[in-house]
Design a binder for these strands. Structure first.
Lengths: 333, 333
DNA sequence: TTGTAGGCGTTATCAG
DNA sequence: CTGATAACGCCTACAA
């Protein structure tokens, strides 16, 4: 079942059938109707492979992320796919994990599939050392690269980010203003975004005239139990804190459970702020104050930008979105 | 940059280059090395579009789900993509929403993309009335359809399901055995899976010699606040219950929060069981006893079956996986 | 072991 | 407005 069959049944050439398929106006209404009728009758569908070969595009975007089961990334993927599809694009999903080698390998794999562009979702793709990002610049010579919540400068690289630095800085400032003296900063990695958040924390502490204490900035696995254990250990080793500012909601949940077990009152004796405003922040009692970093806005902006790029439009290399602090029961300001 | 360029530079025919690309043994080692060197030097990558056209396959599977940001579906997608990729297949993601028309529309869309098979993820694709599933049978005439946690009989349709009926039945039985008299069953839809769960609940109640009360089987939006409000309303309207068996973890979280607010003690005065054993079940205090319906096993089994199908192997039309009750703090058995 | 030639199903360019 | 024909890049008999 191909274009020849249709052309035969409709008594026209394949060129005319092709014109009908592609909405070319240079076809008489009568012919168009006849061709459409035959296509319907034969149940004909154009072969996308042949079309791709000719046009050298499949109208498909690669969506890369480290782990699509992560709630934040899952939500991002949802919005990206939806937005891309409404623009007529398919999405090939590719979970790369967190290792540099596999990230590179999968990026190349996706490229070899000749996708029209690749969206790198989440902050895990940008490393602190420029040389670790070199492969991205290399890939971007071939196809556009879109970063969601990551930032990198380069030809054909477009970033849409949430201002994590400002968000953490302002959250920490709020805690300090409400009387908190020792804010524990809990984070789970050294990605660019994590470092930006950390620097936001440092700034807020300095701005308030306090000294930044190394022992109050704690690296911890991105895991509920790990966070609880970490806090328990810190506390019993004599480190005092009256607030926990977490770089991930799941760590904040760990903080709530730690307080529960230790008999510490929230928010009276301990304030807690999470990050991402995910459903996790609403499962605990009290519910967790959390930074909403606007997944949906990040994703729709990314896709809009991409569409302009693919249409050779002029677009900014970087768009910044402003996060918002959602106040709930774990803080008292 | 195509196979002709490579053949020229390597002083061989395109057939030989093609053989090297495809690992055909009928090439002298010397020639192979020369060709490989040229490919490397030119940075040649085979054009997948041309290849797809000839072979009539892109080695791509369509993954359909209603909403990829749902935690359970997100996890399923993660495992599916990973497993497919390790078998050399790409995944095109397609979120269809919950409406019958859009589900049908997107299924056809995916088909027109000539994917090798479609995986329907989650129980939302099977409706109670056979006529509502007719379009699936129709599609399966063209390509294999794999159901993850849904079951339908038909040519080229393969189902991998978790025994939801048994799981709910046994969970309810455990509650009854531990002395609970009035178990409220909270669910959020009328999909095939939901109806199976409900019937498991009914069975357990009947088996225990109790009468099944309609007012104890409550339909509720799949939402935290909706669940809380629903329970509050039921309670104040005089309906008594000493256990909540929820068809979704998020509903169980709602139950915990309801008890918190109403000053009801868990598990002494109220038992709660959730479903899916998602991270949500670990965020509350106490943590929620939940049915683990084995997402990973469901997904790897599905992909394994699919691979056999695509290799014309003989495979069962239906595989059932046994769920497991994970006991935590919201029950006392 | 290697090369030649035909086919996969479109789209696009011309010529009419 | 319509038709013939040449790409698009690869795979694979078949021939040598």
């Amino acid at each position: 079942m191909n274009i020849y069959d249709v052309s035969e049944h409709a008594h026209v050439s394949i060129a005319t059938v092709s014109r009908v398929i592609n909405g070319n106006p240079n076809v008489s209404e009568k012919t168009r109707q006849r061709v459409l009728a035959v296509m319907e009758e034969l149940g004909y569908t154009p072969n996308v492979f042949a079309r791709s070969l000719g046009l050298n595009t499949m109208k498909t975007i690669g969506i890369m992320c480290s782990d699509s089961s992560d709630p934040w990334l899952a939500e991002a993927i949802y919005y990206l796919e939806k937005e891309l599809r409404s623009n007529g694009y398919d999405s090939i999903l590719c979970c790369s994990g967190y290792l540099p080698e596999t990230k590179k390998k999968y990026l190349e794999l996706l490229c070899s599939k000749r996708v029209d562009a690749i969206i790198l979702t989440g902050s895990h793709y940008i490393e602190a050392r420029p040389k670790d990002n070199a492969y991205l610049l290399e890939t971007a010579k071939d196809i556009p690269l879109m970063l969601v919540n990551g930032s990198l400068e380069g030809e054909q690289i477009y970033s849409t980010v949430c201002d994590d630095h400002a968000a953490v800085c302002s959250a920490a400032a709020s805690l300090i203003k409400s009387g908190r003296k020792s804010i524990l900063y809990l984070y789970s990695g050294n990605s660019y975004s994590n470092l930006r958040k950390l620097s936001g924390y440092r700034k807020a502490v300095r701005d308030a005239g306090f000294t930044v204490k190394e022992e109050l900035m704690v690296l911890c696995q991105k895991d509920l139990d790990a966070a609880m254990e970490q806090l328990k250990k810190l506390s019993s080793s004599g480190i005092h804190f009256d607030a926990v500012l977490a770089a991930e909601d799941i760590l904040a949940v760990g903080a709530v459970k730690y307080a529960d077990q230790a008999g510490i009152k929230i928010p009276e004796d301990l304030n807690i702020i999470g990050y991402n405003n995910s459903i996790l922040s609403r499962c605990t009692t009290p519910e967790i104050t959390s930074v909403d970093n606007k997944v949906e806005a990040l994703c729709t902006t990314t896709v809009n930008t991409l569409m302009k790029v693919l249409n050779n439009g002029n677009v900014p290399a970087k768009t910044t979105i402003t996060p918002e602090l959602i106040k709930r029961g774990t803080t008292n300001f």
